[in-house]
Simulated scan of single mutants.
Amino acid sequence: MGLKEYKGEKITVYFDGEICEHAAECVKGLPEVFNVKARPWISLDKVDAKKVVEVIDRCPSRALTYKI
């Protein structure tokens, strides 16, 4: 699967599906940003970048990372 990049206006999020543990911290934390039923499943322009960072920092597998 490899590393996928999702660019927003103020933040870029990287997702590595190969190490994801599916703990769903992202989906539970910000369902309007992390929506597995949508394509792309990460939509970064709907919420403040600081909130995205807070949720990503809860990812136990570190499958989600970011760059401001």
Rank of each mutant, 00 (worst) to 15 (best):
G2D: 12
R62S: 15
V53I: 15
K4C: 04
V13M: 07
S61C: 12
K46P: 02
K46Q: 14
Y14T: 04
S61N: 11
D16V: 03
A38H: 09
I11Y: 09
L44W: 02
G17Y: 01
D48E: 15
V47S: 01
V52N: 01
E32M: 12
K51M: 13
K37V: 12
P40W: 11
K67V: 13
I68C: 10
C59F: 08
A24N: 11
V36G: 06
P60V: 06
H22G: 11
F15R: 04
A49P: 08
G17L: 00
E21Y: 03
K37L: 13
V53G: 07
I11F: 06
R39I: 12
E18I: 00
E9S: 14
E21D: 11
E9P: 02
N35E: 09
S61I: 08
I11Q: 09
K46F: 14
K50L: 12
N35W: 05
H22A: 14
D16I: 01
G2H: 07
A63Q: 10
A49W: 13
V53W: 04
V36F: 14
G17F: 00
E18W: 00
V52E: 01
Y66M: 05
P60H: 05
E54D: 15
E25A: 15
E21L: 14
D45Q: 10
P60I: 08
I56G: 02
V27N: 00
V27Y: 13
M1K: 12
V53D: 03
D16Q: 07
V47P: 00
T65I: 02
V55T: 10
K50I: 07
A23W: 04
E32D: 13
G2L: 11
L3M: 09
A49R: 11
P60D: 03
K51L: 15
V13P: 06
V36L: 13
A23V: 08
E18R: 13
R62M: 10
L3F: 00
K7W: 02
V55D: 01
I42L: 02
D16S: 04
E5V: 10
K4E: 13
I56A: 05
T12Y: 03
L30E: 06
Y14P: 00
G2V: 09
K46T: 14
I42V: 11
V13G: 06
C59H: 07
D45R: 12
V53F: 10
H22Q: 14
R39Q: 09
G29C: 08
V53M: 10
G29E: 10
E9I: 04
V52A: 02
T12R: 03
D57K: 13
P31Y: 14
L30R: 02
N35P: 04
P60S: 09
F34Y: 11
